[in-house]
Design a binder for these strands. Structure first.
Lengths: 148, 148
DNA sequence: CACAACTCAGTTGTCCACAACTCAATCGGG
DNA sequence: CCCGATTGAGTTGTGGACAACTGAGTTGTG
């Protein structure tokens, strides 16, 4: 006697929609810097720790090499990062900010502030939502590996 | 004196990651039905109300015609839906489930149950999270239209 | 009726996401 | 030291997303 759930009742759909909405809010601001949202995430990661390898970036962003490699290629073509093949292990490539890429940090920081305030939530509410989402993601990843 | 926020502290990044994680959980189950997650959303919408127009589907899924049109083309090629140009207004195209598409409803319903339980959250918690996300999306869309 | 404005679906081009794969470099056990 | 297994980055192919645009069809107003 289970009714098929409606789209609007689904938490997963709300998640999917919210994710696209927030990226859409970032878009016009990032456009002015010549960045997309995933590219911005790479820079945020490098502002924190420069010189990460491609796979370390993939781990942090939860993206595989098939996504990260072309992303970095475009960031390099745009002059924001540089890739260096490491001499001690020729398989590894480290990614380094250029002066241009490093210089975007303060503007990037401002953009995250603007987006945060546009959410209409307090800092504490945002932190609570973030933690809830991270629990959700963690639970899912745990189940994911156990199923076939 | 504002430090640049770290990636892991950002609610937006948590949202982006959670969204991809849940779609990743759906993926192997939907693969067995020959569907992707956005295609599944179209079918959910049609299981509720068959014969919607392309733009009505776009409104419900919050996707523009440039995304929905090719999506429907693939769903039609796979034999799950049919598109009909309406005779009373030749601009409109209505989308109808085929017998094959309608027959997936019960399996589709099961999949949403499995995903819900994999979240590790109770029904009430999921509802609360969903409502929180919908508030978030609504707040963002409101600000979005006011900014240039 | 005429015709400009608008609506609707679809196309084009760019960038992400991910599966499946390639290939070189490195590691580890015999 | 050798060779099979593993690791790391990258490529290829498919399917979203979305901006910008196209063109047919419809509507409203003079």
């Amino acid at each position: 006697m289970e009714a098929t759930p409606r789209l609007r009742e689904q938490a997963c759909f709300a998640l999917y929609t919210a994710s696209r909405a927030v990226i859409g809010l970032y878009r016009p601001m990032l456009d002015r810097l010549g960045l997309t949202y995933p590219q911005f995430l790479v820079l945020m990661s490098l502002w924190e720790t420069d010189g990460r390898t491609v796979s370390e970036l993939g781990d942090e962003l939860q993206l595989d090499s098939g996504t990260v490699s072309p992303l970095l290629k475009r960031l390099e073509a745009a002059g924001f990062v540089e890739r260096r093949r490491e001499s001690d292990d020729e398989r590894r490539v480290t990614v380094h900010l250029t002066a241009t890429g490093a210089a975007l940090e303060s503007q990037g920081c401002e953009i995250t502030q603007v987006v945060g305030s546009a959410s209409g939530m307090s800092y504490d509410e945002l932190v609570a939502l973030r933690d809830r989402l991270n629990e959700f993601t963690h639970a899912i990843r745990t189940r994911e590996s156990s199923n076939e």
